[in-house]
């Protein structure tokens, strides 16, 4: 299956090679959507997902090109290949959307997420938390006598793993940014 790259304004664009296999396998895809940075654009994207019953596993958004008024939305979603193709095509229909990229199929990409964990405890548990944080290369960004706030960056898997380890050690709060992703190389 080749990707459907929807780039507006190009006439070479074709869905000729678009041959999704209608399988039932649920796939997880990371989509990068370049949008005009105008009011309501995020509501349009989110409304599309809720209105059509698609999943959002994570979503991040920020302006990336101030002069060009472009924001980049990174969406992690899951669905059958047919649903993923629909999501991309539906995103492409939104008027202020400039480009839709499926980073999962367009070649290798890197994904990163930032998370903060508050761990509350004393004694051995507190020491163990600090030791594990070190192994995971998490930084302590705040501490009191009974709490640490760790900051960790990495692929979502790594953050999930860290969260699992912290849970029995007194994990009380988590804040995650959601995934930011870019294709590797050129």
């Amino acid at each position: 299956m080749s990707p459907l790259k929807i780039k507006k304004g190009s006439t070479s664009h074709s869905a000729y090679n678009l041959r999704p296999n209608f399988s039932d396998v649920i796939e997880r895809h990371t989509l990068a959507v370049l949008v005009e940075n105008e009011p309501g654009v995020l509501a349009r994207v989110i409304g599309l997902f809720s209105g059509r019953g698609y999943n959002i596993d994570s979503l991040t958004v920020a302006e990336v090109d101030h002069t060009g008024h472009l924001s980049r939305i990174t969406i992690v979603t899951s669905g059958t290949p047919q649903v993923i193709e629909q999501i991309k095509a539906q995103l492409g229909r939104i008027v202020p959307v400039h480009e839709v990229h499926d980073l999962t199929v367009e070649g290798p990409s890197v994904e990163r997420e930032l998370a903060m964990f508050k761990v509350t405890g004393t004694g051995d548990k507190r020491v163990e938390a600090l030791r594990l944080a070190d192994i995971f290369r998490a930084n302590v960004v705040d501490s009191t006598l009974e709490t640490f706030v760790f900051e960790i960056t990495g692929a979502p898997d790594k953050i999930d793993a860290f969260a699992e380890l912290m849970r029995p050690l007194g994990l009380t709060d988590v804040a995650r940014t959601g995934v930011a992703a870019l294709p590797r190389g050129n």
């Binding site: 459907l4 074709s14 869905a15 000729y16 999704p20 047919q82 193709e85 095509a89 229909r93």
Partner: peptide
């Protein structure tokens, strides 16, 4: 003319946008 109409409901063999 709308890529989202293609393969939305019925899988087609020759899509032409």
């Amino acid at each position: 003319i709308d890529p989202s109409s293609i393969n939305k409901i019925i899988r087609v063999d020759i899509p032409i946008i």
